[in-house]
Design a protein around this nucleic acid. Structure first.
Lengths: 215, 215
DNA sequence: AAAAGTATGTTATAATATTAACAAATATTT
DNA sequence: AAATATTTGTTAATATTATAACATACTTTT
């Protein structure tokens, strides 16, 4: 039980994947699982699984393994899911609208409370039950509504300014889908999703496979 | 020059980010840059930059630094960009259509050659100039057209089957946006983009910040 | 053209992360 | 109820990754 040791970022990044697998097991009505069995399913080592969970004190029992429901719930708590976190989307283009309709956010406990854009043709329309608002009203909205996370799907040239405005209004987390890299104070949490990055990684891997195949 | 040593995956994953920054420098007409200057911009250590490039033999010159254009081009080559890689999108829902219109793929040298779906209401419509085809014609299409990468945006329950069909037809790279985890032979390259994962990481970070702020 | 200043490639060191090993605790079997 | 089999939490060992140090080579200045 080494709960006060700082948890490495790599461990945190693995938690959503554990959460997903455990959710599957729950659906299949599986009550218990050992680190060994889970490691086979997930294609990682059992040692890593036990080590990871141990950063939070460990959730299992010797000779038994892990109770799936309990473990699932605990990881959810660690990740802070189902705290009723609210989110907005800034940029109601194709990607923004697609994300607004993305059911997984809701499943994970995040609630979409606003969508913003600067295009008069889009403003006022409904996306997944939420009305698109003029981005000029962002500050007003944020003064009246608590927003935990903002998803950024604006064009590259607009994103830095929007991000700063959000941070100034106290938004603590940004999920950045734009191609730009944000320069922001450290008191904000930023996660970048640059969709073409894994595409390039794929490109590399494919070329490598072709090379290896021919050597 | 240790070119034949295996390049760690972490290094490959960093290449797209270097590529992006170098592209920016190019636009700003900056001809040369040192690892020190780049490290400040990118917020990494200069040592890591030099170490990373050295896996490929190194691209700089002592006392001068790196020629931006040359370095940009070399990283592009390593990643296999501008090889004319073709891609298809399977799943023409909101996300699939948004990705089809995503200009960054084209900018990075990937060419969209097909979009597939099983919904009769969507089949036949045009998305970004490409006609949506019945997914039953996938095999026929793949027999007639070389496809390097497939982007998967189908519902979870359909994705495993589609992935297998693609692999059987020789597609080497899969970019999986679905929530499911694919079980496939090792001769395929797979990159997963689970959009709710970074969202959960954000949630964790926010809670952590709040906790730290109050301690 | 010589001297001083830069900045790389590369080796050495330190820090992290992963895997292995195993005693302690619980579950299951006989 | 005792013996055997599981399986964890945790410590130890290994492997990987990141950082620091520095000799070497080139650039720029004087």
């Amino acid at each position: 039980m080494e709960e006060n040791k700082k948890v490495p970022a790599v461990v945190i990044k693995r938690l959503p994947r554990y959460y997903r697998y455990l959710g599957e097991l729950l659906k299949q009505d599986i009550k218990r699982i050992s680190s060994g069995a889970l490691s086979q399913k997930m294609n990682v080592t059992a040692s890593q699984i036990r080590q990871d969970f141990n950063y939070f004190g460990g959730f299992g029992q010797q000779g038994y393994g892990y109770n799936v429901e309990y473990l699932y719930s605990e990881i959810g708590k660690i990740l802070g899911l189902n705290d009723g976190d609210t989110m907005i989307i800034v940029g109601a283009g194709n990607l923004g609208r697609a994300l607004a309709s993305h059911s997984n956010f809701e499943k994970r406990g995040f609630k979409l409370v606003g969508i913003f854009d600067n295009n008069p043709n889009i403003i006022g329309s409904l996306v997944n039950g939420v009305r698109v608002t003029d981005v000029r009203e962002l500050e007003k909205f944020l003064a009246e509504n608590r927003v935990d996370i903002a998803i950024l799907t604006t064009p590259k040239k607009a994103v830095q300014e929007v991000a700063e405005r959000l941070v100034n209004c106290g938004v603590m987390g940004l999920l950045n889908f734009s191609y730009a890299e944000l320069k922001l104070p450290h008191e904000v949490a930023v996660e970048n999703v640059h969709i073409s990055d894994p595409m390039m990684t794929l490109s590399y891997k494919i070329k490598q496979m072709r090379k290896d195949g021919k050597v």
